[in-house]
Write a protein that binds this DNA or RNA. Structure first.
Lengths: 216, 216
DNA sequence: ACCTGAACACCGTTCAAGT
DNA sequence: ACCTGAACACCGTTCAAGT
């Protein structure tokens, strides 16, 4: 008799439960959704569900991890891209659209990340990794002569991530439409932190160019 | 017989309930605190409490309003202060300390602000007012020759508020200690957006000064 | 007018019993 | 090994009854 545990089934069940939970949370939010509703959506009994997730909070934690994992490769892309500012704006736009698409889910994840110490820890270390990646990408672009940074790479990365967090928060609270106008502000700030390399021919502009409102 | 409603008592009871709720939320967080605990802390029965607040969510909403009202006068101070960047850093530091002081409460307010559409609305309009105040203060400082803005006042205000939101979010999630290091990054960015006025004698520095790491 | 506290409907979680 | 679903403890909210 097959009495040994089946890891493939377990994985399938976890995915099945997570998909059902996401569908429910999108519809009615995290705290308005009951475990019974998730069970119904997943076509499983309560007992079966609790075999794969020890609590409702763990379901949110698993969803948060999934979302966080999707975001990380985007930072990788910055190191490769030709235009750093453009890559950052694309990342920012992606964050807004993604967070706005299902704001209630994003809001819930942020809320839960702040409530649950275990999730906070995971988010903090993910954040540190992203910060390091962005710092390295900026420093590399500077060394390669593709940009001039207006401040040390680590500081610039910190500032950019503060703004990205702000954008995500707005998108979660106000929807993508509420955050999208701020993308232009983000771009303007990024262009002040990450400057194009000095033209090799001549640097004709004097410092008053700083106060010019439009540059292109 | 005194059978007419007593507005003074109602106001006193609401304050009493709010203070009790804040004490409980600080201790155990919003969702871990039961109405029974708030009732006990406020020395009132459940029935009495529901006479003054229609739901638990309304209690959080009232607390959120109180916190929001505390923040607004700080923006007023920027218009008056001599050094705009310094005022902004003080505001940022205040936001970090306040949010970090009772992170669980701040986290709950942010979470609830994103969940409850009525609260979202109130936050959005408060946010718009703060943005306008900051824009006007920056524009006034520029007109007064106290600063040169690296971009239009409205844009600069938008960027600064994105960063302030990011700082508050970090402080709520990681505590004041986790957010405090980012204050230096905030300052560096603010100094790139809000530049000191051109020296009247001579503008000797050429554009390569932009890439200098330290300026003072 | 204001308050009490038992009662109600419902929630997340558990566990004896099935296959 | 995996699943079921009734049962448990507890929650936010209500309401008949008191003063």
């Amino acid at each position: 008799m097959a009495r040994s545990p089946d890891p493939a089934l377990a994985e399938r069940r976890r995915r099945q439960i997570l998909d059902a939970a996401i569908a429910c949370f999108r519809r009615r939010g995290f705290h308005q959704t009951s475990m019974q509703e998730i069970c119904a959506e997943a076509a499983l009994s309560a007992g079966a569900l609790y075999r794969y997730f020890p609590s409702k909070a763990e379901i949110i934690a698993a969803i948060a991890d999934r979302v966080g994992d999707e975001r990380e490769p985007l930072y990788e892309a910055i190191a490769g891209g030709a235009n750093v500012v453009e890559s950052l704006c694309a990342l920012a736009e992606g964050a807004i659209e993604r967070a706005g698409e299902s704001c209630s889910l994003t809001a819930e994840i942020i809320a839960e990340a702040m409530r649950d110490p275990a999730l906070t820890q995971r988010f903090a270390s993910k954040d540190a990794r992203e910060h390091r990646k962005l710092s390295l990408a900026l420093a590399a672009a500077q060394r390669g002569g593709r940009v001039r940074l207006a401040m040390p790479a680590q500081r610039a990365a910190g500032v950019l991530m503060l703004m990205l967090d702000g954008l995500t928060l707005r998108a979660a609270a106000l929807g993508a439409a509420g955050a999208r106008p701020l993308l232009a502000d983000f771009r303007a700030a990024a262009e002040r932190l990450i400057l194009p390399p000095v033209r090799p021919i001549a640097a004709r502009r004097t410092s008053h160019a700083l106060s010019a409102e439009t540059d292109r």
